[in-house]
Each structure stands twice: as C-alpha cells, then as structure tokens.
Design a protein around this nucleic acid. Structure first.
Lengths: 338, 338
DNA sequence: CACGCACGGGTAAGCGCTTTCCCGCGTAGC
DNA sequence: GCTACGCGGGAAAGCGCTTACCCGTGCGTG
C-alpha cells in the first residue's frame, strides 16, 4: 500500500507538501509542485490511510446509528432519512444492527465510541429494563462527557435530544376508529412487552377504547416479536382463545400482515368478518390485500430530524421533537359483521 | 477522552502493560497489575481509540460491501447473509449504499480502501459501461495489488471470486412457464438496460419463449427502474400500447408488485385477465394478493457465500459459485382468458 | 557459589498522517 | 543599499496505540 511518503518521494517533495496538495490545505503550493504530486498520486493509485488521517486530525467525521435491523422496513425507512442528512453534510454513516440484543447494543456504543464518531443515534425502541438502562446511560454519559453527541428516536430513559413518534396518540386514534366502527371484541397483537414502543402504543390504544367506554382486558393481548410470523402466531392464539373477536389491532404493520395471512388461511374474510389494523404505514401496507388501515409515522422524516439534532452543536437543554401520527383508512377495517 | 497512558498512569504501570492486559496479549502480566489496570479502565470508562489501534496493528479487520440500497429487500436479504458470516468471524461490516450511481460506487471503493478493509464485496449488479468498468477494475486492481480481497455478487466484468445467481436460467423457467400456460402476448417490465441483471434475465426469458416457438419483440419490453412505482408505470405503458397482453413478466418482484397495483387500479383481474410473474422471491411476494409467482433466488445464501469467498485466503484461480434459481408457482399466474 | 535463563515489566520505535513552527528566498519600502 | 516582511517549502512533533527489544529480578542448575 503506497503511503504519503512514497508519493512525496516520487514527486520529489516533502510529505508536508504532498499532504497539503492532497487535501487542499489553506497553505498555498506552487502549480509546479502541485502538478508533480498529483501525478505521483495517480501513478501510485494512492489513497490516504483513513485511520492515520483520523488519528492525526482527531477529526470526528463519522456518525453511528444503532438500529434493530436495517432489513426491517421500519428501520430502513428511518435509516434512509438519517443517511440523507448525513450525506448532505459529508459524513459517513456507520450502521449497526443490534438485532434487539441489549448486550450487543452496549457493545456497539463502545465500538462507535472507539471509532470516534461525532454522534451516536439510537434508533431502536427503548427497553423497560432498569439494569440495562443504567449501563447504557453510563456508557452514553461517558461518551457525551468527551464531546460526543447523542440523539435517540423513540422513548428511551435518556435525557437528551430526541425525536418522538407519537405512538400513544397514534394508537389512541386506532382505538377510537375501531370503536367508532362498532367493534366490541378487539384482540391486540402486541410487540415485546419490554419495549417502550409496545407499552406506549398499548396505552394509547387503551385510552382510545376507554374514551368509548370499552376496556381492554389483558387476555385479549398477545405479546410477541414485532415480525410477520409472530404476528400470525399471535393472531392464531387470540382467535383460538376467543373466536368471536371482530377486530385485530396489531401494533406494527409487519404483525398486521402476518395477521392478514393467518386470517386468509383460516378463511376469515377481512374486513367483513374481522377487521385488521396496523401501525407504522410501511410502504408495503398499500400492497397487501386488503390494503391495510394503519397509523402513518413519518419514518424518513424522523430519521432526518434525528440526524439534524445529532449534528447540530446542541442547545443547553435537551430538545425533544414530537412527530404526529396520522390515521390512514384503507380496506382492512370496516364495521363488525351483523 | 481518556487515553491508554491515562489508564497506565492511574494504574501505576507502563502503557505497554496496560495495553497487554486490555487486549489479552500473549505476554503474561501478574494478577496484581492486571487488576489495577482493569480498575483504571473501569474508573475512566476507557475505550481504546479504534483508529490508533488499527493504525498500529495495520490490522485489516473490517469488510466493506457496496450495495445499491439496503432498504431494497433484495439487498437487505443479501446483506443479512453477508452480515451473518462476517459477524461469525468477528468482523465489522461497513455497508455503503451506492444508490446505483456509478460515480459513488467508485468513491466507495476508494473510501473502503482508505479504511483498510480486508475485503470489498460488490453486491449490486454489473453495468454495461466500458468506461466505468475500466475505472472500477483499475481501482479494484490497485486494491488487490496490496493484498485486498474482492468478491462480487452477480455478473461484473471483473475476474475474481464471484457468486452468480442464475438469472438466465431462472428467467428461462419463467418464459417456459408462461408459454406452458398458453400465453402468447407477453409484456416485459424490465429494469435499467444498463444492468447485467436486466440483460441476463431478458436473455433467459427470451430463450424460454423461443423454446416454445414464440418470440419477444422489443416493443413489448419497457425499461425502467427496478422499483415498485416504475413497475406500475411501465405496466401502464405496455397496456396502453397493447391492451391485449395476457401476461406481464416483471424482472423483479418490486416491479411485479407495482404491476399488480396498476392492474388492480384498472380493474383487470389477476390472474384471470392478466397473469403477472416476478423475480427474486422477496419475502413480500407471498403477502400480496394474489400471491406472486416468481423465481426464487437464495439471497441470504448468496450473501453468505460471497462473504465466505471474500474472507477465505483464496485459491490461485478465481472461484465462481453459481446458485440455482427456482420457479415458485403461486396465484398470480394462470392460463390466459378464453 | 557463580552462572544462565525464564519471567514480568518498562522503554522506545514506529504505524501514516497533519500541522505547527521555522527557514531561506525574493520583493518592497525607506 | 539595507532591513522588514511575505511567501513557499521542509523538518519535526505529535495523534494513541502496539510490540519488538531490553533490563532487572529470582530461580534452577552445574
């Protein structure tokens, strides 16, 4: 691997001069030398060693983001927003998949810190886990103490800049909508109980139902992973326990799509026999059949905002941006039968 | 940011000793000192500077992958495979989205080279573009000359390790299937003409049709981007030009889903009036209505294989692994009407 | 009892780059 | 004609870490 001194030697200049022409220093260099250096760079196919540069400059250029899994549409949309802003500002984005393993999440914070990133963005949901929270906050605090910036998406027990999707009022809309349609027996396909996203959405849903004088007994809730197959399984369990359910509220679209698949396999018509609603409005929601009634979250926007917060030097006090959720009525919801 | 010497000072040892206990060197250290160092690390929340480590070790740990866009399911599946193998081997994966901009692709090769990655994996399709190919191969050659390893997924004009999805015979299966069902007038919704993936699939499709004595005139092909909306638009254009088409062959599933959406909006029943087939068998293919007949490509496996090739020291001669494609019959294809 | 050696620990030389500081030159000002 | 200054260029000091290499113990051997 050619080094800067190789280039300098070949061009007959000092490493200092070579460095200056290569990354356009403010210090002027004569065209003559500049030309020679550039020629040497081309001849040697020289590429600066990024680690050496970063070390020498102690320049915090990159930004890290910890998501659950980029291949999950929820996160890939958010990531798109993050990426856009980061790229606009000429920054490299390091994407880390925690696969919702708290252990790995902690490791990634350290890894990113070690890589001297300018900011860390936590895009996954927060956890209801005091011990984990303590450890995470400890690591984040250490990072922030040395000038690192942190922004979170969603509700985390972390005081600092945050972008908050309005899970609670979104879910409330969902609850109200189902009541308005006349549903009485509503099953809920929920995500992992340990996630704040799950509990917030559940709280909102419950509020929506309560507003119409209905309640949400615990036996009509099934907790599972936030993915399609778990959604299908949870739906099956709910229906087995209580076949008279007329609506399934899934707490994200992936699970809702699983619910649709299960209902289809059991020959239960949606929405005629059972209504299904989701949450997130992933692109796919309009391509399933029936198209999915859901809550739209401005995912790309959330990512963009979070990155903007993370890169902005920051105010004295934490900034929290709340983003509204919106009901999108499609074909998977209707009045209950009879 | 605490440094190693801070730790050493606090523990009352030399930086060398501190370094040794922190990353388990082969050189033994007494428990007494080890304990003191670990305590200091904990007290200071010390995290080694990754750049300094990488520089000092000149250890090529990370691996880079250049994809079109991780949020595209095709690539996110591949990435999952890559990630799995990389993680198993304790390596960091740097994911770069080229957004199919050749310029950016070249830049990323340099960037990854600068980051001293152990291997670069090109996961996007190859281009039919001599100039670009020349530039890319130049950069890759420079990288390989210094010990870097390269693996590609798909057909690239690059001699080296490669994983080849069998686009051509997959498409041939598709063509044959449509013929067998009795379709005569088949429209093709193709990806960008400049991609080898597009041309290979097109070639296969044509072979499949030819085998049954049918041909594929150029006016029944529409080239567009490989995404849903472009698929819908291309389908619309095909039908406007020739309303009698009885089948739409989309060259990937996203476009096929766009085709389904368009047909639904025009009230054309699938598969009764028009059959639709896709390519890739993305997870979503079984959730659209009707479920999509498509060609299954072992995407995760492709990623895993590519990473394995990239990390394996390598044989003298290029290894090319071809992965079979398989027809998956679902509900979107049937005999043409009447 | 002297010697050698293994062992635990420290010293210092880089890894490849940036950047400050300094130096020699040519020009302008008096 | 001499000093002052600006300018292009080089020498060298790090950035934070790893890792030879070296050096003093304390032990085992002849």
């Amino acid at each position: 691997m050619a080094t800067l001194s190789d280039v300098a030697r070949r061009a007959g200049v000092s490493p200092a001069t070579a460095s200056r022409v290569i990354n356009g220093s403010s210090k002027p260099v004569t065209d003559e030398l500049r030309e020679r250096v550039l020629q040497a760079v081309a001849d040697l196919q020289y590429v600066p060693n990024a680690h050496a540069q970063l070390l020498a400059r102690s320049h915090r250029g990159a930004v890290g983001v910890i998501v659950h899994d980029v291949s999950d549409p929820y996160f890939s949309e958010i990531t798109r927003g993050l990426q856009r802003v980061a790229t606009d500002q000429g920054r490299l984005l390091m994407i880390c998949n925690s696969y919702r393993d708290p252990e790995r999440e902690l490791e990634y914070v350290e890894l990113l810190r070690g890589h001297q990133v300018a900011a860390i963005i936590l895009a996954g949901s927060g956890y209801h886990d005091a011990e984990f929270t303590r450890l995470l906050n400890g690591k984040l605090a250490a990072y922030e103490a040395t000038g690192g910036r942190v922004a979170v998406i969603g509700r985390h027990e972390h005081s600092g800049d945050a972008v908050m999707p309005d899970n609670r009022s979104g879910a409330r809309l969902l609850g109200q909508e189902l009541c308005r349609l006349g549903h009485e027996r509503i099953g809920v396909v929920a995500g992992p109980q340990v996630l704040t996203t799950t509990t917030d959405r559940l709280t909102g849903l419950r509020e929506g139902l309560t507003a119409h004088g209905r309640d949400l007994p615990e036996h009509r809730i099934r907790y599972a992973e936030f993915d399609r197959d778990s959604g299908a399984a949870a739906t099956a369990a709910l229906l087995d326990a209580e076949p008279e359910l007329t609506a399934i509220a899934a707490l994200n679209d992936s699970m809702a799509i699983g619910a649709l698949a299960l209902l289809r396999s059991r020959g239960l018509a949606v929405p005629d026999r059972v209504s299904v609603v989701g949450f997130d409005d992933m692109p796919m929601a309009r391509d399933v059949t029936p198209t999915l009634t859901t809550i739209r979250l401005p995912l790309v926007e959330m990512g963009a905002r979070a990155m903007a917060l993370a890169l902005d030097p920051g105010a004295d006090r934490p900034r929290v941006e709340s983003l509204a959720a919106e009901l999108v009525r499609r074909d998977s919801s209707a009045q209950p039968p009879d």
